[in-house]
């Protein structure tokens, strides 16, 4: 059973989805710049921006749980930076403003990314003259992350089917061997992918 991909809601049909990738990311970038330029304690601007994001999300018909979960995943990273502000003068206010701003920026970019198929995002980056090696790396990462996750699922399932006394220690050891095996298999696969790319005329 193949895993759902990160851009699984990018191929829906809505006015937001229909916008060209360049427009979406351009607007998202403008939104980020605007958010950063707003005076730190202009809470009403944050409120208006949040409403705007919610409105776009509703129009795009992407399930709210999908967006919220992705924001929550990255929130600890933002928190790490914001927490440092607590030790500065006027800490709590600064902390709240930093959290609000970074969450808004993140949500704006998330919305643009979630409504754009990854291949279109790559094409946009290509038009922006992002170095080719970086593009290839991004494309390969996107393509093979799911394969790797599927492979780890299959390996863990196979191991579990022969594990009769599940203890936490055994579980951890199992996970470490799965990771080690995946690493070795990935190196082999990388060599085969490279051969397949060269076979069709790839020039690094």
């Amino acid at each position: 059973m193949p895993r759902e991909t990160l851009d699984r809601f990018a191929r829906m049909d809505s006015p937001v989805h229909r916008l060209p990738a360049g427009v979406k990311f351009g607007v998202a970038f403008g939104f980020v710049v605007l958010t950063l330029l707003v005076p730190r304690h202009a809470w009403w601007v944050y409120a208006v921006e949040s409403l705007l994001l919610v409105a776009v999300a509703v129009v795009s018909r992407i399930p709210p749980w999908f967006l919220l979960r992705r924001i929550l995943w990255l929130e600890p990273v933002l928190m790490g930076v914001a927490l440092l502000a607590l030790w500065q003068p006027g800490g709590p206010g600064l902390f709240a403003a930093l959290v609000a701003r970074s969450t808004l920026c993140l949500a704006g970019m998330m919305l643009a990314a979630a409504t754009t198929p990854f291949s279109d995002t790559l094409r946009l980056l290509e038009r922006l003259h992002v170095p080719r090696m970086l593009m290839t790396t991004l494309a390969l990462t996107f393509r093979y992350q799911y394969l790797l996750l599927d492979e780890s699922d299959r390996m863990r399932r196979a191991r579990r089917s022969r594990t009769f006394h599940a203890r936490r220690g055994v579980e951890w050891r199992m996970l470490s061997t799965v990771v080690a095996h995946l690493f070795l298999r990935s190196i082999d696969r990388a060599a085969r992918i490279h051969a397949a790319m060269c076979a069709r005329g790839w020039r690094p």
Partner: peptide, 16 residues
């Protein structure tokens, strides 16, 4: 020379 590899996942390396 067009070479078709044994494992299709090795050969399909693009997003679409």
């Amino acid at each position: 020379v067009g070479l078709l590899f044994q494992d299709p996942d090795d050969q399909l390396f693009c997003p679409t």
